[in-house]
Design a protein around this nucleic acid. Structure first.
Lengths: 225, 225
DNA sequence: CGCACTATGACAGCTTGTTGACAGGCTCAC
DNA sequence: GTGAGCCTGTCAACAAGCTGTCATAGTGCG
């Protein structure tokens, strides 16, 4: 999953990012509404975690604009204030949930899971292709019943491919989904991880095809003659 | 086991917590419905001990909401009132049992055990893997028939692993299950206890594997060639 | 054949996990 | 109440293994 964290208190933002990273997700961080708008314009996030109090305005306004533009990305609002109005405003404007600071990171994660689950309507947390099974809850991968050990990055990559089967994924896109927008990584890193993943899921029934100049595509392997 | 105690009389809450702790369990404590709701959102408790009279409302309402949300966690209701209505309401709303204050801690413990037993489908109270046997009632461990002495924390950890075999458990998650939500402990503590537990259950047929960056996983040891 | 793109081995750096030692706290026996 | 002894959890040093860059080899296309 790919999140956007809009939060000007760096400690908090970092803590959230780290927590989500451990769960195998990638986050972008914005400290102002302006940055947030830029990120949101790229429209590729699975969920936005939005602080209300920001140096250049209210997160509420941002949320309002977002919805006005027709952007339906799930939003979880953070607020330091207990103001009931904020809460009501936020939910009225299309926030999916809100949390009052200080909050527990475990709860944040749980609520994020809840939102994602609600939104995607799919309670099922295992993805399967051929002999390969990816259990998102247990964060484990089985191939023909045998456990397959993937590192964090490899898991993230596999999840991306599994949830976008058949779709051609641009290398730039994969780069962002794997590493976020910061610290521009070498596109080669994607090739590297695709290579590593390929070797590990060999014979699983899932194949990652290279489309020269276009990107990669996960397909069900041909049993072929 | 991981409990949630919702009770605003601090003495009572503490007494319960201490008693359960001695039995090797971990508890979170909430003094208001609001706190309780936050904890419950994390949905990781094995049982909730719920007082009816709380400063910000009735525990009954909380229970009602919980069930409305589809949360099936076992609930034991505490009430100072003898009101028959409360009792009926509570059970109708899906409480598993109720006790009238003042009560005996020993009886509370017994009822908790009963609820847990009932809920787990009368499943026998011992967990076995390979040569290892864990008796949940007696909280004792045998390896190849020989007793294996574990400290409270080690037992708790073992129980977590045994009831989540094959599943990858995030270190953050283990931290909460071992220590509850209060007094943020060092993640290293988890590593430490995993290490200690590993040494004690060596050769028992249960193995705790490390998945770097992801967490720990209990698996049946390879007899291997 | 030349070019651009992709694959892969190797490596240095760094994050993450392991472990021994220790100080403080708790329990229990005396 | 006092001391012994064990449990606890932090620290620090060390080990393991993931990461991502570079370099180099391979591949398809015109």
């Amino acid at each position: 999953m790919h999140f956007l964290i809009v939060e000007d208190t760096r400690d908090v933002a970092e803590a959230i990012e780290r927590r989500l990273e451990k769960a195998g997700h990638v986050s972008d961080r914005a400290e102002t509404l302006e940055d947030a708008a830029h990120f949101a314009a790229m429209a590729s996030h699975d969920l936005i975690i939005l602080d209300i109090n920001l140096p250049d305005g209210s997160g509420i306004a941002f949320l309002k604009r977002l919805r006005a533009e027709g952007n339906r990305v799930p939003v979880l609002v953070l607020t330091a204030r207990l103001a009931v109005n904020d809460k009501i405003d936020a939910l009225d404007l299309g926030a999916d949930d809100y949390m009052i600071k200080p909050f527990d990171l475990g709860e944040l994660e749980a609520r994020i899971r809840a939102i994602i689950r609600r939104r995607s309507g799919e309670a099922d947390r295992t993805l399967s292709v051929g002999l390969l099974t990816f259990d998102m809850a247990a964060r484990s991968v089985l191939i023909d019943g045998r456990p397959c050990e993937l590192t964090r990055r490899e898991q993230t990559l596999l999840e991306i491919f599994l949830t976008n089967r058949g779709r051609v994924l641009d290398k730039e896109d994969l780069l962002v989904r794997l590493f976020g927008h910061d610290g521009e990584k070498n596109p080669n890193a994607v090739e590297l991880y695709v290579g590593r993943l390929r070797r590990k899921i060999e014979g699983s029934g899932l194949e990652i095809r290279t489309l020269r100049g276009l990107g990669y595509q996960a397909v069900i392997a041909e049993t072929e003659a």
